[in-house]
Design a protein around this nucleic acid. Structure first.
Lengths: 191, 191
DNA sequence: GTCTATATGGCGATAGAC
DNA sequence: GTCTATCGCCATATAGAC
């Protein structure tokens, strides 16, 4: 009772090809940056020919934009599909912070992504804005509404506090990612 | 009663040439990034020939490193040749913060510098470390010792507090630099 | 649809005139 | 010391075979 016969066994692998190319593009762009990456190497890393890359993506900027958009959405879902964010405030906040820190410190790919987006934010401002709208803003908003809904914490300005928290963590990771580890900051002093 | 005659009126302009090249290199590298900058354009922007550039600097990475080192030292002196950092804590801290914020928000060149250093921190880690040692670490250390010497602020962990402060400000500037201004954060809630 | 081969131009770096 | 001219090489992008 099949509607269409199986005349095309593995026909619709176009999406796989796109995914395959984006995979290779990610590998190259995140390591060598935008200008430092050649379409030849993207094609080689993806296991296809250069002409195939150009048949699925208009040009180099187009491929780069498609990649960053995909990664931003990916990160967005990986962040907000995890925590219920409810319970005793002190414990929840502490768990949230340590989890975010460990994830950022462990995830080399995420740091490379951030590096590229920041480095290219002058030439691709719309991609930087996309990353803020998809990643940073929701994080701050979530934290803010959590802090607001817990009046017992006596926080006068939840939005400012949320921004301070996020900014401290991100900047901490960014400095630690660049220089040698140095000593680890004692985490018992944020709130 | 001059020791040496004026046989060489404007002879020693080698240093001027170096400065001239570094000026052109700054203009190009900060706008187009490392890989996006060609030595031809550096030479054109500096008003010399490409061969002259190569007579003063070994190669492209050498020129880039020399430029970043110069800019890092420059920024270092421009930061620590200003404030005495003494007086009533509340007022001093507030003035310091607003001043740092306004300076960062106004100085486009500084943000471009930070962008390039972060973007290239994977391929030039020693330059990123240099910028941390010359710029971020002294800032945190100065703040820390100031907070420590004012016991009346009752700050349990001065180093952590200093890092939080710096991280918040830098991250605030970085997000505002990328997206549209959005609303300004109310600054009455850091301490 | 996907490949190989190629057109066209810019790149880093240098040789040699002056 | 500084320039012009040039050498290889690699880049983006496309044409045409299959």
């Amino acid at each position: 009772m099949v509607h269409e016969r199986v005349t095309e066994i593995e026909h619709d692998n176009s999406l796989d090809k796109v995914e395959q190319i984006l995979q290779g593009a990610m590998h190259e762009f995140l390591v060598h940056g935008y200008a430092g990456t050649s379409m030849d190497r993207v094609a080689a890393s993806a296991g296809v020919s250069k002409a195939t890359v150009y048949s699925y993506f208009q040009d180099k900027p187009g491929l780069f934009k498609a990649l960053v958009e995909k990664l931003a959405q990916q990160r967005f879902y990986s962040i907000f599909g995890t925590e219920p964010l409810e319970g005793d405030p002190k414990i929840v906040l502490r768990r949230l912070i340590t989890k975010a820190l460990n994830q950022m410190l462990k995830d080399e790919e995420f740091r490379a992504f951030k590096r590229v987006v920041i480095g290219e934010s002058g030439r691709f401002p719309e991609l930087a804005q996309l990353c803020i709208v998809c990643l940073i803003k929701p994080t701050i908003e979530t934290l803010k509404s959590y802090l607001t809904s817990h009046a017992e914490l006596k926080i006068p300005d939840p939005e400012a506090t949320a921004r301070i928290l996020v900014g401290s963590l991100v900047h901490y990771v960014m400095t630690q990612e660049m220089m040698h580890g140095k000593e680890i900051i004692p985490m018992e002093s944020d709130r």
